[in-house]
Design a protein around this nucleic acid. Structure first.
Length: 410
RNA sequence: GGGUCCGUACCCGAGAGGCCAAAGGGAACUGGCUGUAAUCCAGUUGCGCAAGCUACGGGGGUUCGAAUCCCUCCGGGCCCA
């Protein structure tokens, strides 16, 4: 994936600023790069959830680009801040997590980050912000909170909106930007990366670094990637996310379902590609030399390869064709064992027993809607009863994506 | 401390004693079409084979009948101090 390091500062700048929304500011970044120093590039994550999806990788890929250019990624696990809860984008106070929950999340998180970042010791520093935040006493807190004003904090949209709409804001949430800023001082960050929603917090880092007589960090924000619906930002709770730990076939299929106009965005933000490749692909798509369906397949393969190794994408693609073009059953489907005395049984119920539908009633509905097949043959009678011998070793299908093979026991 | 408002299905949200298994939207699901698990169009969406059962924050009450009225508890918002 990474090419050889660009020779000049200009080349580096071009790569590093590609796809960014803010870079505050570019001149400072150029100066830092010109110094020839290995820059300390901070990225903080709060382990409030453990699954990383493509939305999270947008910033991670940018961080990787810094690493590939010889800089040091300073990955901050926000084990302390996770307990406060980042108010960003929240319309309500985040539920507090226990230290134990945070710890579990942090471990899985780091495991998944390995697939994007370079974990060589000279390219990555991993720290936990509880190491310094937990040690602060009341005097430290007063000193810290004295560095900004209520008006300044309330400028943040999240806070302003919630205040205006009469939604609760916990006092601790107001402190969040200060904590994140403190992290920047502690790790002496040269650059901080984050999503656009982090702009305010990251700028607070500059302010605090100034106060601590440090050279302020360059703040770089990346866009928030839209989810599969193409509307809302990708988030697991909205159900529009592609997890990086998901099976390749799942990733491929999900990516095939994104709206066409979203493809350039995903190429730019979710593939880890360098600007040249992104531009070439996007241009080909625009001038018609790359068909939309081919581009989407390329996207799906690229992402699957990225997280499951080269070849995973091709495998996912052929499986996809098998199931959705040839309407064949998948190469591997779950087997469901049912005891012989249970039969004869209504098919609607069997579907529920096999876990293909949540209830008998739903099974009946699916049959009425023409969504149920036995061994490829559509079933139309919602009251159909099946007996053990005819159903043994047969494949049941509900809709386009759910199968089970029935096996009779005893 | 005082006042006041709110809590409805996966989410948002209407309903203000019976016509309420509960409008509408989102979401999801099924079918048709297709380059796709896209778009578009149509349909479905508590459980039960059924009689029926459970459900509108929890508990209790009024009533022939309660999501709707009363009491109480829990959770939350705002205002005044």
């Amino acid at each position: 994936m990474p090419s050889s390091p660009p020779a000049s500062v200009d080349d580096a700048l071009r790569v590093l600023t590609a796809g960014t929304v803010h870079c505050i500011d570019a001149d400072e970044l150029a100066k830092k790069l010109t110094s020839g120093r290995r820059l300390r590039v901070k990225f903080g994550i709060d382990p409030t959830a453990s699954d990383i999806h493509l939305g999270h990788t947008v910033v991670l890929h940018k961080l990787r680009q810094f690493q590939d250019l010889g800089h040091l990624a300073v990955l901050i696990i926000g084990d302390f801040t996770a307990r406060v809860g980042d108010p960003t984008g929240r319309s309500a106070t985040r539920p507090a997590l226990t230290a134990a929950e945070v710890d579990v999340h942090a471990r899985t998180y780091v495991d998944q980050v390995r697939s994007v970042l370079d974990f060589s010791p000279d390219r990555l520093e991993l720290v936990h912000n509880a190491d310094w935040l937990e040690r602060m006493d009341m005097a430290d807190v007063l000193r810290l909170t004295g560095r900004t004003t209520v008006a300044r904090i309330m400028e943040r949209d999240d806070f302003a909106n919630r205040f205006r709409d009469g939604v609760a804001i916990a006092l601790s949430e107001l402190l969040y930007p200060l904590l994140q800023g403190t992290d920047s001082v502690e790790v002496a960050a040269d650059v901080e990366l984050g999503g656009t929603d982090q702009l305010f917090n990251m700028l607070m880092g500059r302010q605090l670094q100034n106060a601590a007589d440090q050279e302020p960090q360059v703040v770089i924000t990346m866009p928030l990637l839209e989810g599969l619906d193409g509307e809302k930002k990708m988030s697991k709770s909205l159900g529009n996310a592609v997890g990086i730990a998901e099976a390749p076939a799942e990733q491929f299929g999900k990516l095939m379902s994104i709206p066409d106009q979203l493809m350039p965005r995903y190429f730019a933000l979710a593939t880890g590609w360098l600007p040249d490749q992104v531009e070439a692909t996007t241009a080909a798509l625009a001038d018609g030399s790359l068909a939309p369906v081919a581009a989407k397949r390329l996207l799906g393969r690229t992402v699957a390869d990225l997280y499951h190794g080269a070849g995973a994408g091709a495998g996912a693609e052929s499986e996809f064709d098998r199931v959705f073009k040839a309407h064949d059953v998948p190469s591997e489907i779950a087997t469901c064992s049912v005891a012989r005395p249970e039969f004869p049984m209504r098919l609607a119920r069997l579907l529920a027993v096999a876990g293909l539908v949540p209830s008998n009633k739903e099974g009946r509905r699916k049959i009425e809607q023409g969504g149920v097949r036995i061994a490829g043959e559509r079933v139309t009678d919602p009251d159909l009863e099946v007996d053990a011998d005819t159903i043994d070793e047969q494949t049941l299908q509900v809709g386009k994506r759910a199968w089970a093979r029935i096996q009779i026991t005893q």
